[in-house]
Design a protein around this nucleic acid. Structure first.
Lengths: 341, 341
DNA sequence: CTGTTAGCGCTTTCAA
DNA sequence: TTGAAAGCGCTAACAG
């Protein structure tokens, strides 16, 4: 007896046709009501919604997508969740999608093109409405799948290479170049570079190249390097800064591969009593919020990661089917003077 | 003429039946091969795979899921991507899913139970194999949907409340309590608290309660509070620390609602020349990596966020259908002595 | 404003 | 080891 009072059978899957039957209407009418599509009389709607609520009916989008040959899924492939920049891009994507019916499905490639290929296949199997990738390095099959899909494909972070369809990001070459120009204008001449493994982070290399270009124009070069064999981290930045200063080439400014590394540099200086800017100036890349809270605000370049994700979505929604020319959106960058350089 | 040499028609969607026709086998045979299921002769497999590769066939999981009434989707609802703890939980989830065929579909609730409800409905429409939620506060309809679904439901971060099905996390009450015990044992007696808005972060409140309990046992209380009206951030931690020290109650240790806030406190002290630990001891919560790279390593509590995500997946995969009793996994916490307290 | 018909692309029986 | 038939739950296209 007690069993009779429990909640509705967990297993009794409620379907459209069940709702239709109980409401004495056809299936398509229920379908239209659930999708707010087509003209429906107020009474019918109320009658049906009563049944929907009573049964706790949740439409099956899998069936819906199959029937309509459209899905509200947006596939997203990012290299990592450890590097804060990618969660921030995701934030932008979620922000752009807010209020729409799209669902992002996110996969992580671990910086591997082969993993990305497997992931892209797996995401494409869900017939997404669009695909978003961070980066431009793909295997040939990946590229082919994306090109042939006909859906919109946004490649993020960079605008230097040629995109498959949409590119949203900034010119890392320019960012590196302008960083160099800025530091030269501030009077620095003896440059050091503190970096991390370029194999996983090609854009850091491009920024480095841009920096070197600016220096070369001024007849300067990078006099000392300290590069960790691994991903960027604050701890690595701290250690590599100690390493740089221990070398026998004295520098007056260190340019870092990114803010994580640069903040490690700031910590080293604070801990070792090296006067920031006077003895060693520090310049980063990304414009992380924490840089602003440091005892001396970090000098860096803001890279607008949130905006990159948001604009990618806006471009996709603005024109959901691919046609004609590629498009490139430059989200720019800003030199943040700060106090460390 | 030129048109004839372009890539295969972007729009020509390749289907199972097309592959079957070209390979001279039945659809079900191709289906079995694609899913590695059932006995298939080597020749048939090779013959079919040749066609699959030639056509670039990607199975349509939407159709597959509809037919088999199963999906490889795992729905994930987290409050935010801004707070670093959630991307770390996501990392754990992705790590746990690596090598399996499951795809996490992630939505963000913005700390709103109503938004969570909409999100859960939307995720449930994809008939996920399991659902993962961060937190235990849900609307009644949300709870009902999850209970009735019959799928596995993991609620993360906390183990103090009663879960719907699976709970993975730590006891925030104990973490607060043990923090208090630790600091008392270290000789601190004059406690201050620096926090952020509890409305969005109930667990911070529970830790606070645990802390107060430990203090009460020792006949102590928190003598001064400095609480920002908004989310936690390093900048807020810095400002609230200045505020705490400007008050007329002098404290010898400040306990922070989390590491973001605590690191702001460290920055304030470094900038204002307040001797860390001697003049003001600082104690955080979370065990963020950056705390370790500070000039003085942050004293804090490690909360194993990556592990929480990973173990949630392991529990789900271990027993994909719900049955019998709820289960609770305590991922524990560790006091990190550090150098600031 | 509402309904009928015919699938979407795949997998589950059940046979052979 | 392979196949034929019958849907999964929904929506497009066309009536009425």
């Amino acid at each position: 007896m007690r069993q009779r009072t429990r909640l509705p059978e967990s297993r009794a899957r409620v379907t459209l046709s069940e709702v239709a039957k109980l409401a004495n209407v056809s299936e398509i009418t229920v379908s239209r009501i659930m999708r707010n599509k087509g003209p429906i009389s107020v009474e019918t709607r109320e009658k049906v919604m009563a049944v929907v609520n009573r049964l706790g009916y949740v439409p099956n989008r899998i069936a819906g997508s199959l029937a309509s040959a459209t899905s509200n899924i947006i596939g997203v492939a990012i290299p990592s969740l450890s590097n804060i920049v990618f969660p921030e891009v995701l934030r932008g994507i979620h922000a752009g999608l807010k209020g729409t019916d799209y669902q992002p499905v996110v996969g992580v490639t671990d910086y591997s093109m082969k993993t990305e290929e497997v992931l892209v296949r797996s995401l494409m199997a869900w017939k997404p409405a669009a695909m978003i990738l961070a980066g431009f390095d793909h295997t040939d099959p990946t590229r082919q799948i994306l090109v042939q899909s006909g859906i919109r494909v946004a490649e993020l972070m960079d605008i230097d290479p040629e995109p498959i369809d949409i590119a949203v990001g900034l010119s890392h070459r320019s960012a590196g170049y302008e960083s160099g120009r800025y530091l030269i204008a501030r009077g620095y001449r003896r440059f050091g570079y503190v970096g991390h493994d370029w194999a996983e982070d090609k854009r850091a290399k491009v920024r480095y190249d841009g920096l070197c270009m600016a220096l070369a124009e001024a007849g300067l070069t990078i006099m000392a390097h300290s590069i960790v064999d691994g991903p960027s981290s604050t701890l690595a930045g701290r250690a590599m800064t100690a390493n740089l200063l221990a070398g026998n080439t004295s520098v007056d400014v260190a340019v870092y591969s990114n803010d994580d590394m640069a903040i490690g540099g700031v910590f080293h200086c604070l801990g070792a009593g090296v006067a920031l800017r006077e003895k060693l100036a520090i310049f980063g890349f990304n414009g992380l919020e924490i840089g602003d809270a440091l005892p001396m605000a970090l000098s860096t370049v803001r890279s607008n990661r949130f905006l990159i994700g948001k604009i990618a979505i806006e471009k996709i929604l603005e024109q959901p089917d691919r046609r004609g020319a590629r498009s490139v959106v430059d989200t720019g960058f800003q030199i943040i003077p700060g106090e460390t350089a």
